[in-house]
Design a protein around this nucleic acid. Structure first.
Lengths: 205, 205
DNA sequence: GTTTAAATTAAACGTTTGTTTAACTTTGTC
DNA sequence: GACAAAGTTAAACAAACGTTTAATTTAAAC
C-alpha cells in the first residue's frame, strides 16, 4: 500500500479529527480543510468517506503486533511480563489516536468491518500474553488458573481508561501538558500494570 | 425532574440508539421512530437534540454514586475492597448503556458539558476508594504508597474494556447470549478485579 | 510543441440533517 | 358546550451532508 504526500496528508488529517470528534462527527469538508486539499480529492483518492476509514485502518493496523522475537531472548518469567507490558504500552501510546478511534468506532455496532481488522491484532496479542504466562507457570513462578483474557483486558482497559479520560486524569494528577502525560503513561502507569500482573500471578490464596 | 410516559419513551429510545450508534450517528428521526412518536415531539419536549443529551445525563447520572453507608458497616479491609468492587461493577453493569455513552461522548473534545456532569461522580467514587485503601493501610493490612487513581482506573478500565469489546470477548469466552455475558461480568470478572486489587495492595516488594 | 493522462478545482447534485411552522386534536376548567 | 392550554401531526424550512460533474491545470512522454 503506497500513498503519495497528499494522500498521507488526508489520512493524517482524518486521524486527528476522528480521534477528537469521532467518525460521524467529522465531515469530509472538515477533513479537506484540515488537510488543506479540495473536498473532491477525498473521493477522488479514496472513493468515499467510509472507504477512507477502511483504508486508514489497513494503513495503520499492521505496525501493532507485539514483537515476539524480543521476548524470546528473556528467560525470567517476571522480566518477560515487564518487557511485554512495556512494549505493549509504548506501542499503544505512540499510536494512541488510532487506538482511540478503533475503541470508539468498533464499539458501535454499525462498523463491523473495523472490528474484523482489529480482531486479528487482538488475537495475536492475546496469544503472546498466554504463552508468557504459561511459561511462567511451567517455571513454577506463576500460579496456574488465570485466564489470559482477563489479564489482557486489564492491561488494555487500564491503558484505554487513561486515553478516554485524558482531561479528567491529567487534571487530577496535576500534570500540565500532553507530553508529560504521555511520559506518565510510559513510566508510572507502565510500572503499575507490571506490578499488578506480577502481584496477581504470584498471589497466595 | 419529572417526566411523562412519552418523554421517558424518548429518553429510553435515545439511550438505546446512542449506545449502539453514537450520538452523532443517531438522527432525531431515528429516535422518533424508535420511540414511536412524531419527530417534532423531541424538540417540543426537550428543545433540541443537544438538550436531549443534556437532559438524558441529568436524568441518569444521579443513581450512580457508590453507597458509602453499606461500606461503613464492614470492618475488615479486604472485605471492604470486595464489597466496593462488587457494588461498583453491579452499578456500572446495570447501567452499562449509559456508561458506554458517557465513555464515548465525554472522550470527544466537543462535549465538555457531559464531562462536567460525569466529573463529580468520578470524584466521589475516587474518594470512596481512597478512604477504603487508607483505612487498610492504617490497619496494617495494605502496603502504603499506591495511588488510588491508578486502582480506580484499573477497575473502571477493565470493566469498560468488557463493555467496548463486547462482541469480541463474548466470542472468545464462548458465551452464547448477552444475559450470560452480564452474569460473567458480575461473577468471574468481579472476582478477578477483587483479587487483583487485594494482590496488589498486599504484594511484597 | 503536441498529446495524453493525472491532478485539481468550483460548482452543483440529491439527500439527510435538526428545527420550525401552522393546522388540527385532545384534554381539562368553568 | 364554550374556552384555553397542552399535545400531536404532516409538511416545509434552511443548512449541512457525502458525492459527482465538468472544466481547468499540471506533469510526463513522445
Amino acid at each position: 500500500m503506497e500513498f503519495n504526500e497528499k494522500q498521507i496528508d488526508i489520512l493524517l488529517a482524518a486521524e486527528r479529527l476522528f480521534a477528537t470528534k469521532g467518525f460521524d462527527g467529522t465531515s469530509v469538508r472538515d477533513i479537506a480543510n484540515e488537510a488543506n486539499v479540495n473536498v473532491a480529492m477525498i473521493n477522488y483518492y479514496f472513493g468515499s468517506k467510509d472507504k477512507l476509514l477502511d483504508t486508514f485502518f489497513e494503513w495503520r493496523v499492521p505496525d501493532f503486533m507485539i514483537n515476539v522475537d524480543e521476548l524470546a531472548l528473556i528467560d525470567n518469567a517476571l522480566d518477560k511480563i515487564d518487557a511485554m507490558v512495556d512494549r505493549s504500552i509504548k506501542s499503544m501510546n505512540s499510536h494512541r489516536k488510532l487506538y482511540h478511534i478503533i475503541t470508539i468506532e468498533s464499539s458501535l455496532k454499525q462498523r463491523m468491518l473495523i472490528s474484523e481488522a482489529f480482531r486479528k491484532l487482538k488475537l495475536h496479542n492475546l496469544e503472546v500474553i498466554s504463552s508468557v504466562i504459561n511459561e511462567g507457570v511451567k517455571q513454577g513462578v506463576f500460579k496456574a488458573g488465570y485466564d489470559p483474557i482477563l489479564i489482557h483486558s486489564m492491561m488494555m482497559g487500564t491503558f484505554m481508561n487513561f486515553q478516554m479520560n485524558h482531561c479528567f486524569l491529567q487534571d487530577q494528577l496535576r500534570i500540565d501538558n500532553d507530553e508529560e502525560y504521555a511520559n506518565y503513561i510510559e513510566t508510572t502507569l507502565t510500572e503499575f500494570i507490571q506490578k499488578t500482573i506480577k502481584a496477581l500471578l504470584t498471589y497466595e490464596k
